[in-house]
Computed example of a mutant assay.
Amino acid sequence: MTEDIFAAARAFLDREGRLIERRLASVLFDGADASGVIDAVRAYRNANGGFGHGLEPDKRCPASLPIDVECALGILLVASRGDATAGSGDPVADGLVRDACDWLASVAAPDGAVSLAFPVMERYPRAEHWSDWTYTPGLNPTAGLAGRLHQLGVTHPWLDRATDWTWVRLESGFEEDAHALIEVMVFLAHVPDRARAETVGAHVGEWLSKADWYRADPADPGYGLTPVHLAPSPDSPWRRLFDDTIIEGHLDRLVRDQQSDGGWPITWEPPGGASTLEWRGIETLRALRTLRAYGRL
């Protein structure tokens, strides 16, 4: 049964997935070198050091946007964790990540915070939820960007400012949704000041219980972030927030959600057919990684 799940999902990625997910699957499951993923990510890079061109598929804007930088960092981190080959390309050493930090510094508010997107995206196809609310600097994405950069071992003046800003925001409380909270959880998991992270992290369970767009019930068919989004592996520092029953329920739901074509569905409306398939490839790879991490594959 599990072999069928895996084979059907890989066939879906081979048939419908974009190059990045196919390259990532090769790194994660076939032991391929991560340099191919880095090359694929580089295709979304702009001359200013940022990333665009719909790397996050809900908008087709070619201009650099912070959300696309965050996606690039996340992809590079997945590739580096799965790469079994020593000496493959290092996006930090070759300047790919440093240049992205320079670009973030150029578009950040004076306090270091950045927004998800800019009005330039309005000239291009985009999902309805990508609107002017994404122009306000906030924890989503500033905390997540900072957390991923700390995870990569980066040092940069903008990262220092963004980290200080995030601490100030978190230590005054949290009243945002689950999308912002998952960014905060990345930050708290990787920021170097561990004592401070543990103190603030003690409040995450309480914050989560009140957050919009958190989907605790495995039977809920609607859109939302689930416990296996927030703790995608048993060794996640946030696994402690969820009891075994709820994790197993969401893993069962993840298995049931695989479609007859081998891929996983999405629960929102991207701007077009290509974006839909790109997202389904992303979600299919996420499902495989989660199921494997929890011993279901």
Score class of each variant (00 low, 15 high):
L288D: 00
D220M: 05
A34S: 09
L285E: 03
H190Q: 11
E198G: 12
H179I: 05
V107Q: 06
G87L: 08
L254R: 11
E278T: 14
G281V: 01
F187C: 10
R60P: 00
L181I: 08
A195I: 07
W213S: 08
A9F: 02
T199M: 12
V107D: 05
G112I: 12
D30T: 08
R256A: 15
T290N: 02
L254Y: 01
Y223V: 03
A86W: 01
R194L: 10
A202C: 05
G205R: 04
T226R: 15
V120W: 04
W238N: 01
A47W: 09
G49M: 07
E3V: 09
Y214H: 07
V120F: 04
T267Q: 12
F51M: 03
I5G: 02
M1Y: 05
R45W: 00
W264T: 06
S64C: 10
A32L: 03
G249N: 07
V200H: 06
I20E: 13
S80T: 05
G147E: 07
S26V: 00
P270I: 07
E122M: 14
L76V: 01
D4P: 00
F29T: 08
D33H: 07
R289K: 12
G89N: 08
P227M: 01
R60K: 12
R239V: 12
R161Q: 12
E3A: 14
R253L: 07
L76W: 08
L139S: 04
D30L: 12
A231V: 05
G82I: 04
L291M: 02
T166N: 09
R296S: 02
R215M: 06
P91V: 01
P125S: 06
G273T: 10
T155A: 15
